[in-house]
Amino acid sequence: MSFQSVRFYQTGTYTVGNRLLDEAQRTVQATVARANSLTSGHRACQGCGEALGARYAMDAAMHATERQMVVVNATGCLEVFSTPYPETSWQVPWMHSLFGNAPAVATGVAAALRVKGRRNVRVVAQGGDGGTTDIGFGCLSGMFERNDDVLYICYDNEAYMNTGVQRSSATPAAAHTATTPAMGTAPGNEFGQGKFLPEIAMAHRIPYVATASVADLRDLEAKVEEAIHLRGARYIHVLVPCPLGWGAASHDTIRLARLATESGLFPIFEARNGEVSDARTIRHRVPVDEFLRLQKRFVHLFEPKLDTARIAQIQAHADRNIKRYALLP
């Protein structure tokens, strides 16, 4: 665990703040001095998980670097909703080039800073799952294998959302998208396809790989802080539910992230130099259907009749994660 969890203080370290804890034990998000890296007025949908995850991560990085950092942004929702020319919501030094080249641009920024002797200025790159797992994957793998001094953060909402919800290589099995319709004998996204990028990043044996979600702020902040102080290539993969693309209520964003981790569908762990070093254990385990039922993209699993076979396949995937990452206390 990246942070010491505190118990028996009413809500312990589960809530954003807690008046009963020392200031030092509260989150960056609990402070009025937080950077608000992604400020108000952005055009993200109501209840956007990515906007929330990006502010959590960037505020933590701004805090940890004492605001000495440069952010490179891939194309995607995050760029489109935050920066329609000539307006921006970013309150960080921020640049955007193309959809697929954010890791390469970040590598260049890091090289330039090294040449200029600005060792204290850190480089962070960020993008959605499309820009990271599909379009920018070649550049990202190159950045990893060269061990360039960049922290790359992927906000995974499991499809291309701003272009109208098309499947990406991070889309889960059975999910309905514009390109994987819920029709025919195998409705929704195919089973047995897609990739889990954190494990691919681990295969590069880079210094630090971690997963996190918007449902556990303290864990996310601790991982960003841990990663930002390391040198070399680092990767954090954050699960950010999308009310639009997942077909969920805007107030359920955090609940969905919580159910994804508590069911084992999305494992929360850390890996150093290619080896899993820690995992966040499940607190109140739930079956996967509690997560699936809240989303219209999985409605064909429940209506018109319960598709027990596919739900069992998804449950088996969660069970495998629980075993592989030792997620039970």
Binding site: T11, T15, V16, G17, N18, R19, R26, T27, Q29, A30, A44, G47, C48, G49, A51, L52, R55, L217, T253, I254
Partner: peptide, 9 residues
Amino acid sequence: CDNCYGVCP
């Protein structure tokens, strides 16, 4: 508990 302050996107 600061939850509302934290979770607002």
